[in-house]
Design a protein around this nucleic acid. Sequence first.
RNA 1: GUAGGCGUAGUUCAGUUGGUAGAGCACCUGUUUGUGGCACAGGGUGUCGCGGGUUCGAGCCCCGUCGCCUACCCCA
Length: 404
Amino acid sequence: MIKALRGMKDLTFEESERFVHIVTTATTIAKRYGYSYIETPILEETKLFKRSVGESSDIVGKEMYQFEDKGGNDVCMRPEGTAGVVRSFVQAKLDRRQNEKFKFYYYGPMFRYERPQKGRLREFHQFGCESFGEASVYEDFTIIQMIGDIFKALGIGYKLKINSLGCPECMPPYRQNLVEFLTECKDELCEDCNRRIETNPIRVLDCKNEKCQSLLVNSPKLIKNLCSSCDDDFAKLERLLKSENIEYELDTNLVRGLDYYSKTAFEFVSNEIGSQSAIAGGGRYDRLVEFLDGKSTPAVGFALGIERIMELVKMPEVKRSGYYLGAMDEEAIDSLFPLASKKRDTEKVTVEYAPKKLKAHLKNADRVNARYCAVIGEDEFKDRTIWIKDLVEKKEVVVAWEEL
RNA sequence: GUAGGCGUAGUUCAGUUGGUAGAGCACCUGUUUGUGGCACAGGGUGUCGCGGGUUCGAGCCCCGUCGCCUACCCCA
């Protein structure tokens, strides 16, 4: 038997229903916030991700589905959504249209070659939004609010963590500071952290190693070393969240795993889905458009993990709906089709092609969760009528074919 | 890449010191030849992951292998 590849899943029945429910809910809300749909390719040039996500990140460093295509191009299955959207934004020269704002939402599969576990697949799906051209922190707030709306509509609980990663003004001096601090205690830090001091010292902050964390308690905090512009914006963000009663906690160690973030960074987490607890994450990436050869354009965005959210949503109970059509004798089967065709203008219709006893039809109707079980028996066929039972109200009627 | 756990019916799982393969749910048939869910009676639907080995005999013991799950790591 051929099975799906490791870390790749089929979704059917209630699972696929839940998947669609999440996408539709998120889409509806994103549209209310002025976002329009963007579809970008799954396959992109490897360079795109190296330059956006960053070569120091694990995603690019060791988790990409990377290969040479038949034309000899070095390509990757996208490991995340933002890079492709920004590439598309620049390619369409939307970056030249200064003072205009562009808001896009997307959803689709992402690929990372990791060891699968709970909440972590090799092919997984994200829903995300990217807002271009808006430098105001009000936009950061609005995006957080929108995610809150989505989770509220889906009926799931979460905790919001926020942090500021600073800007080109304040990040480099802080980084220098941090490197000095880390170098002093490097003997006690774990192997990974020692490597990160060179490659990406900020990543040391969210090391999961307990010993490292205990040493980091006294590390310099970026949040205390922001430039005045970043500091003002972060204060404003906190004020806005408070005034809208959006609960959050400051997490000074929150560092997004992708290199392109600056200023506002946030993460929505759940404690109900195992160790892979991040259900949404995002932040500001004012410099990414430039990195990808566009004109400097402020931007902010987020992505949410659909499979992780699927573990949290409860679907509304499915009610009986539509018609089940069947016949008790072979000669009556043909007459079902005009009736089905007519009913399908407005209703879900299931047709049984084999003649069966009434009891079997009722059972089938039950099984497909139909509201009405409609059967043509011997008498009905003679009279050109059909017997209909409402499976909820338990009422029965016989009507002429024309009246169905 | 590392560590632990698990692979037996459609599904969830039991299976004793090695001795003819089991249960609940689901499914099918009937009680009811035109009335679903409920009840009752009956029905097992299986390459015990795969390949070797030990043994008179292996679901069980040994070796190997594949797969799944969880955690580290990473992140949505």
